[in-house]
Design a protein around this nucleic acid. Structure first.
Lengths: 116, 116
DNA sequence: ATTATATTTAACCAAATGGTTGACAATTAA
DNA sequence: TTAATTGTCAACCATTTGGTTAAATATAAT
């Protein structure tokens, strides 16, 4: 499991940086389900799926409930809060600072240089 | 550069899954700055910093303006929008579905099993 | 012209990632 | 008990990652 705040962000962002895992999260957002069901849409072995699930679990995004030989996975979105919060901090940014301080830079980059 | 929507998410989430790069983004949110200045806080070589910046650039989060031998980096938060949007989709989730469908599962996991 | 500054590139390295196969473990069904 | 089902684990493999050092590039200063 993850220790501090930063590692939590590392883990969550890393977990979500993979399309397979994002698809799994999307699937689990509809309803909890078993491993095989979760694996079904993907053209990879169960072993590979198993690893993906463990990455999600490691980030705290998936909670597993073992009952007999069936593992049920459920989404826990709480760890995403940190990610949202981090990102949201910059959401206001592009309404303010970017335009003010950076627009010139970006334009500069595209425009022909005057002093060449 | 990144092609489709999914790869864009891959790139942004991956870029932000590293504490050094997040710190760089935070630094650039205050004001654009040069490579050396951006590198200063980190105990790593300029070459390593250069790679980090390229990852950020690849995700579209940093725009570089080369002027002579000085490279100025500026933050572009726009690519984060996709990430925010994706995450936000699940923000409403934990107010609804999680509690309803999953709470039992999670509790189940923590509680002692009755049929053992 | 020479030297100093700013930055990238190439080559390398160890560790992590994302996948495979094959064997194992645990549970359920015949 | 034997066989099928569900899923993990270990070993392996190629690629990527995050770092290094050393060399190269480009510009600016002397």
């Amino acid at each position: 499991m993850v220790n501090n705040q930063s590692e939590q962000l590392d883990a969550v962002f890393h977990a979500l940086a993979d399309p397979t895992r994002r698809a799994m999260v999307a699937r689990l957002a509809q309803a909890p389900c078993g491993i095989s069901e979760l694996a079904a849409p993907f053209a990879m072995t169960l072993a590979a799926v198993s690893k993906h699930i463990k990455v999600l679990e490691g980030a705290g995004l998936v909670i597993r409930n073992v009952q007999g030989r069936n593992h049920t996975c459920a989404l826990d979105t709480q760890p995403m809060l940190g990610g949202i919060e981090w990102l949201r901090h910059y959401e206001q940014f592009w309404n303010q600072r970017l335009d003010a301080l950076t627009a010139a830079l970006i334009a500069d980059d595209a425009a022909p240089t005057t002093t060449e």
